[in-house]
Design a protein around this nucleic acid. Structure first.
Lengths: 233, 233
DNA sequence: CGGCATCCGGGAAGATACTG
DNA sequence: CAGTATCTTCCCGGATGCCG
């Protein structure tokens, strides 16, 4: 039985499957293993390198990350690609279908936000923060708003464009930003979700502003959290 | 260290966590273990007994089911309850918050439906079938429709009420049904999603109709599948 | 240095048998 | 019927080491 390595011809036939025609069950066959969805989450704003993924997913080990990347590539969720010269490094990038998985993260996040056990003081990656903006924006609160909010988190710059009760978020230069937040992802999250006053030194590190401060003050009110569930005694 | 069983005071503190403030990550801490989401799926149409869950989740073993039920109860997703006499049996029932997880299944199912590897010929539970109706209904195809479709799958009877481009699905008596499908869940799925003609004996078993046959013919056209992704060579 | 293979310990999942 | 006990198998996570 199983005389040789059965991971031979890329078939991955040995992987445990639920053997269930239900779409959700098949999704779990594809991305239900530990870390798989979080790897995808980290790629939702664009390609990343192996070491970036490791850095942004504290706790994942190199061999598990390798396995997940292989599995997700075999599933058609992402591709491994070599950037053209002069960069010439390998990056992992979601396929168009991989990008279509965002509603999964939104549904999971919206649901878990009501959990009484949710601890917002844990570490938070930059990608998580920006995806949460797409998820939690309250369209009713953006009346007549057309603004560009920039974010600088470490070496990464991201622009959020609010217009017509919608928000677009993506990596971009910050030239056109009306206001720019600079700080760590947890510090920005504390301002948006924790009601932490702007420009205060928090335990999550400093948060600084350049530009239209009134716009920043309004921005942090656009993402209301759902009420926690009451204890089911 | 760990002198005694550390699963003592219901804390379950030993469970692996992603230690991530992201809502989706916390959701995976709660329901990311193998089988957890499928157990929840099976309860989405109402409470079930332990042995019903085992029967509807072929492949799960008794001890894993026990662990998941304990974990989900500790998380506040479901409760274990004793039906009043004369039934006096234990059932597991989602909490109101547990029922709110349905968008997760819809997002997972919609996304995985486009997977090239999805095999619709696998076994399918009755609950999966009815949840798929809620997920896949095309509101544009229900113009001027107000109809009650009944389903009899084994001992279970379920009524789907189509009205105003919406569908409600739940366990109910079939007295008011305009048409009733009787058969196995895979047989009904073959008619709705596989384009299998009605009233034909298929490999999935017989499917029989009572009532408004024309309505049944229309019903099976209301749930279009999304196009499969093209191979990313 | 980035990416991946290998080895190992611990723990979760799976199968089977057994008990109240 | 509703689980528990036990055993085996496999996955996860950490460390090390190879190789471009």
């Amino acid at each position: 039985m199983k005389s040789q390595k059965d991971t031979k011809e890329g078939l991955t036939a040995s992987r445990r499957s639920y053997e269930d025609a239900c779409g959700a069950a098949h999704a779990l066959d594809l991305v239900g293993e530990r870390w798989a969805l979080l790897v995808m989450r980290e790629l939702m704003l664009g390609p990343k390198r192996f070491s970036d993924l490791r850095a942004d997913l504290p706790g994942i080990s190199a061999n598990v990350l390798t396995q997940r990347l292989e599995g997700l590539e075999a599933a058609g969720v992402l591709i491994r690609r070599k950037l053209p010269p002069p960069a010439s490094v390998h990056v992992y990038e979601l396929t168009p279908w991989g990008y279509e998985s965002e509603p999964i993260f939104q549904a999971l996040g919206r649901w878990a936000a009501r959990s009484p056990q949710h601890d917002p003081s844990l570490p938070l990656s930059a990608v998580s923060l920006f995806l949460s903006f797409r998820t939690m924006l309250d369209p009713h609160r953006t009346e007549g708003l057309d603004a560009r909010i920039g974010f600088r988190i470490g070496a990464e710059t991201v622009l959020a464009h609010l217009a017509g009760s919608r928000i677009e978020v993506g990596r971009a230069a910050l030239d056109q930003a009306d206001v720019v937040f600079t700080g760590t992802a947890p510090a920005i999250a504390a301002a948006v979700y924790g009601g932490q006053p702007l420009g205060i030194l928090t335990a999550q590190g400093a948060l600084s502003l350049e530009g239209d401060r009134a716009l920043a003050e309004r921005f942090v009110t656009l993402f209301p959290l759902p009420p926690k569930i009451e204890r089911t005694a």
